[in-house]
Amino acid sequence: MVDKQLGDQIPEFGKPKSGGAQGASLSNLSGMVSGPGIRTLSEIVAIILVAVFIVGGAEILLRVFDVPVFVLPPPSAVFIALVTDFQFIWPHLIDTLIELFSGYAIGASVGLLLAAIITQYPFVEKIVAPYILMLVTTPMLALVPLLILNFGFGYAPRIIAVALASGPMVMINSATGFRRVDLAKIALARSFGASTFQIFIKIRFPMAMPMIIVGLMIGAIFGLLTAVGAEMVGGGFGLGNRLTTFSAMIQMPQFFAVILILSTLGILIYVTFFLIGKKWASWET
């Protein structure tokens, strides 16, 4: 009667073993959660001053040297384009968001589920690991022409590309989390008669949480990247498509307005997961 959860390991603890180091485990969450906090008024003033200096400086330099708008539009022109042309851009923003959310929802849940399953079977994990690594390292954008060929110019190829890009990222980071074994904590749960499932839900999952959140964040950012990239390859809608269209028509202020929207999306993704991490994984810092 070898305990399934504890196995037959020598009870040594202290340092949670994080299993094999294969995979792109991007550190833990502590770097993310313990970012610089803004507290004092002088800090806020300094941040605003630097921002004004950069934007204002760019505006002045571009105007003084009379840089053509198609080379680099001044910030004011970009801002005006963003306001006046937003009505034409926002349907494309919605398209991009639809692709991002659906693709990410599929990719992230499959990735998380697979990570949870394969880490329970070390033997399976060893066999699957190279393929996962291949999925992580191959840019899924490369598959988009093929996907368009098979699924046409609609949402489908983009959603698939987003899922393929975000899933492996979520999976490989979550797997690193699930591989963290703390024998003492498992023994604790077992001593109260916990089942394998209970140990997974009450011990392994919370222990993996910080890495899962990191994986979800990286997956979301890779998803955005891939969504925009896929839109640039083909199809007549989406923010990526706007980028190619505006640059073809040399509408540089509009082009940069889209860039601005995209970076805002990226920052929103980061901030969302930062807050999630603060709520659910701050115990690790």
Partner: peptide, 17 residues
């Protein structure tokens, strides 16, 4: 594991989350 046994572990072993 037996319901009549309570265990106290090294380093308290509380769940940090």
């Amino acid at each position: 594991p037996h319901p009549q046994i309570g265990m106290v572990f090294q380093d308290a072993n509380l769940l940090p989350w």
